[in-house]
Design a protein around this nucleic acid. Structure first.
Ligand SMILES: [Mn+2]
Ligand SMILES: [Mn+2]
Ligand SMILES: [Zn+2]
Ligand SMILES: [Zn+2]
Lengths: 135, 135
DNA sequence: ATCCAGATGCAAATGGTTTGCATCTGGATA
DNA sequence: TATCCAGATGCAAACCATTTGCATCTGGAT
């Protein structure tokens, strides 16, 4: 179980290690992929109130423990925040895969120039396609 | 006005050129940036029912006249579909700028390999930063 | 001028997310 | 170990973007 690890992480983030938080964070670590609030509800056997899940995820996000993945309109997904990375989504079955690629520095600099923005801080990059099972 | 151009586009898309559709498409062409349903309501002086706007945008999307931009969770944005491009968003004032950059072919091929997906069809790429006015 | 498939307006429903408030609890303290 | 309370939770209601059912209206073909 990741309960111990989750508790440690909560402590270092200066958050109270409540039953609910440990459970949610351990689940996010175990699944290692973007989960919806509903997903989290199911994985925790509906033992947590929906409002608690939302509030907890927001807290986790502020502390950098999770990051929100906005793939489409509608429901938000959250994943345990590890290394910066991107995703590819199967448009047929919804499967999400991590990608260990990122934008080349040259492109990021190009954006800095072309945008004429004072700062460019982040970017979101997702790919969409059809996985082998869904061909 | 872009009313004439809008009517032409609707005709070539085999869509009936109703008052509402011409108005919406002309607005999207004129603004040339991603607009929310509320934006479109305001720009058209609240003369259109919200349900009509939603249904019209969906129709336009199916015909390739507009594309939906999912920047964050919450409200969807729609823009007149021209060349494939990306955006940078100011996280302070919300301003959205077009970017004429795209991913290098090498990266796209890399994704094809690493993902092990059968097909990779699209991608979404958005940058976030602070514009000069908001520094 | 007539006609009708498809488009619109209105109002109610839906679904994800947020919020107010009473109660509960983690963990600091004595 | 018992006490205590700021902060966390559960519950129910509110909120807000989007969708849907249905009666009425209209673009454009005849
Ligand atoms: Mn991931
Ligand atoms: Mn654009
Ligand atoms: Zn698939
Ligand atoms: Zn700005």
């Amino acid at each position: 179980m990741n309960a111990t690890r989750a508790t440690e992480l909560l402590r270092s983030a200066e958050l109270r290690a409540t039953t609910q938080r440990v459970l949610l964070l351990a689940t996010l670590i175990a699944e290692a992929k973007p989960l919806s609030v509903d997903d989290l509800g199911l994985r925790t056997k509906n033992s947590l109130d929906t409002a608690t899940i939302y509030r907890t995820l927001e807290t986790f996000k502020e502390k950098g423990l999770v990051r929100r993945v906005d793939l489409d309109q509608g429901r938000a997904l959250y994943e345990h925040a590890g290394e910066h990375h991107h995703h590819i989504v199967c448009t047929k079955c919804g499967t999400i895969r991590d990608l260990d690629i990122c934008l080349p520095k040259t492109l990021q600099n190009q954006v800095r120039e072309e945008s004429r923005f004072a700062h460019v801080n982040q970017h979101a990059l997702e790919f969409f396609g059809v996985c082998k099972k869904c061909v």
